[in-house]
Computed example of a mutant assay.
Amino acid sequence: MQKDELAFLEDMFAATELLECATCGEATLHAHEEVLEVYTVGTKLRMQCTCCQTSRSWIDWTPPQTKANLH
């Protein structure tokens, strides 16, 4: 695997969360679809289940300033 391919896959994996899916009823990987709102205490995202493809909103409670410093 080439470096750019590996970097792309790492970025894709970093943009997922293991969440309980309301449709599947199981813990599945959910991909970040869209940032809906940014608050001082966290970020509201639209997440898509990688198993059944349904979408839902989710709040990442990591403060946005801290998140920016991590990258």
Score class of each variant (00 low, 15 high):
residue 1 M to D: 02
residue 1 M to N: 07
residue 1 M to T: 13
residue 2 Q to I: 04
residue 2 Q to K: 10
residue 2 Q to W: 10
residue 3 K to Q: 04
residue 4 D to E: 11
residue 4 D to S: 07
residue 5 E to F: 06
residue 5 E to K: 13
residue 7 A to R: 15
residue 8 F to K: 07
residue 8 F to G: 00
residue 9 L to C: 01
residue 9 L to D: 02
residue 10 E to F: 07
residue 10 E to W: 03
residue 11 D to V: 03
residue 11 D to I: 03
residue 11 D to H: 04
residue 12 M to Q: 07
residue 12 M to N: 09
residue 12 M to L: 15
residue 13 F to Y: 11
residue 14 A to G: 14
residue 14 A to T: 06
residue 14 A to P: 01
residue 16 T to A: 02
residue 16 T to D: 00
residue 18 L to H: 11
residue 18 L to Q: 15
residue 18 L to D: 08
residue 18 L to R: 14
residue 19 L to W: 02
residue 19 L to P: 06
residue 20 E to Y: 13
residue 21 C to R: 11
residue 21 C to M: 02
residue 22 A to G: 12
residue 22 A to I: 12
residue 22 A to S: 14
residue 22 A to Q: 06
residue 22 A to N: 14
residue 24 C to T: 14
residue 25 G to I: 09
residue 25 G to H: 03
residue 25 G to M: 04
residue 25 G to N: 10
residue 26 E to P: 00
residue 27 A to F: 04
residue 27 A to Y: 12
residue 27 A to W: 04
residue 28 T to P: 00
residue 28 T to L: 02
residue 28 T to S: 12
residue 29 L to R: 09
residue 30 H to Y: 03
residue 30 H to A: 01
residue 30 H to N: 12
residue 30 H to T: 09
residue 30 H to C: 00
residue 31 A to Q: 06
residue 31 A to V: 06
residue 32 H to K: 12
residue 32 H to W: 01
residue 34 E to A: 12
residue 34 E to G: 05
residue 35 V to P: 08
residue 36 L to A: 12
residue 36 L to D: 05
residue 36 L to R: 13
residue 37 E to Y: 14
residue 37 E to G: 04
residue 37 E to K: 06
residue 37 E to H: 15
residue 38 V to N: 05
residue 38 V to S: 14
residue 38 V to M: 14
residue 40 T to I: 05
residue 40 T to W: 11
residue 41 V to Q: 11
residue 41 V to M: 06
residue 41 V to R: 14
residue 42 G to H: 07
residue 42 G to T: 08
residue 43 T to G: 00
residue 43 T to Q: 09
residue 44 K to P: 09
residue 44 K to A: 10
residue 45 L to F: 09
residue 45 L to A: 08
residue 45 L to T: 02
residue 46 R to D: 08
residue 47 M to L: 14
residue 47 M to E: 08
residue 47 M to P: 05
residue 48 Q to D: 03
residue 48 Q to M: 12
residue 49 C to D: 03
residue 49 C to V: 13
residue 49 C to A: 13
residue 50 T to W: 00
residue 50 T to D: 06
residue 51 C to W: 15
residue 51 C to E: 15
residue 52 C to H: 13
residue 52 C to I: 09
residue 52 C to V: 09
residue 53 Q to N: 08
residue 54 T to C: 10
residue 54 T to K: 07
residue 54 T to S: 11
residue 54 T to G: 00
residue 55 S to T: 15
residue 55 S to L: 04
residue 55 S to Q: 13
residue 56 R to M: 11
residue 56 R to P: 04
residue 56 R to S: 11
residue 57 S to W: 09
residue 58 W to G: 01
residue 58 W to K: 10
residue 58 W to P: 03
residue 59 I to M: 13
residue 59 I to R: 13
residue 60 D to M: 11
residue 61 W to A: 03
residue 62 T to P: 03
residue 62 T to L: 08
residue 63 P to I: 01
residue 63 P to L: 04
residue 63 P to Q: 02
residue 63 P to M: 02
residue 64 P to C: 04
residue 64 P to D: 03
residue 65 Q to S: 08
residue 65 Q to C: 01
residue 66 T to P: 05
residue 66 T to D: 11
residue 66 T to G: 02
residue 66 T to H: 07
residue 67 K to Q: 07
residue 67 K to C: 01
residue 68 A to M: 08
residue 68 A to F: 01
residue 68 A to T: 01
residue 69 N to H: 10
residue 70 L to H: 12
residue 70 L to K: 14
residue 70 L to P: 03
residue 71 H to Q: 15
residue 71 H to M: 05
residue 71 H to K: 01
residue 71 H to G: 14
